[in-house]
Design a protein around this nucleic acid. Structure first.
Lengths: 109, 109
DNA sequence: ATTTTATGACGTATGTTTACGACATACATC
DNA sequence: GATGTATGTCGTAAACATACGTCATAAAAT
């Protein structure tokens, strides 16, 4: 057997993993849902809607922003967060591709 | 304003977060892709295809199995892992619901 | 100019994940 | 029974995530 170990994961695998990581905490999913429903886009209001402190929510917002799933623009004293459609589209496409591949041929054993 | 903090995240949010967590590491995405392509279903062969030790790969396999994304059945000396179509379908549906909601109304600010 | 309000940054404790070597089990073959 | 092969479990070190109190900043209102 002349197998050789793979040297690294593909960029695609890493990108999808990063996206999944962003969604791997209920608070961040709740934030995205709140923003999608346009109930609010203000950091403080989001914190009111979640069972976490303002500090922690702010941290989750920073994380979502760093990955690009949301944008935040300063509006006077407040900051207005909103979803980034491009990233949402990309996520939708990539997750769908994985699950579709998985469902196509699913009876090995 | 008579806001009161939410008491907890919804079951749906937690379930999706758990699923996303399972996919939040490139190794686990690579494993799912390998199984989908039916190149192999044997633990050792999977480890050969990844830039990680056999031990670590085994750990990732256990994690995927615990969440229910894959099943493993003992076949004599070897263990044959395969995808769980029900879970894949559920994942596809749930991620799609989130991204579709997000894309529906995406220009708050 | 002082106070209030909304927010992010910093520090830090606690918990979780990742990675892997070493050991254990269990079947198969000699 | 000894040896080899496929696999999982244990222990553990290092890295990372989570949560939150306190402090800093900066715009708005007084």
């Amino acid at each position: 057997m002349t197998y050789s170990k793979a040297t690294a994961f593909t960029a695609e695998e890493q990108q999808l993993a990063t996206l999944a990581k962003a969604l791997s905490h209920p608070a961040r999913i709740a934030i995205i849902k709140l923003l999608a429903q346009q109930k609010t886009c203000i950091s403080g209001d989001i914190a009111q809607d979640l069972p976490l402190s303002r500090t922690t929510v702010s941290q989750h917002l920073q994380e979502l922003k760093a990955i690009g799933l949301i944008k935040g623009e300063i509006d006077g004293l407040k900051v207005c967060y909103c979803l980034n459609p491009e990233m949402m589209k990309q996520g939708k496409t990539q997750f769908d591709a994985l699950f579709t591949l998985a469902l196509k041929s699913c009876d090995c054993c």
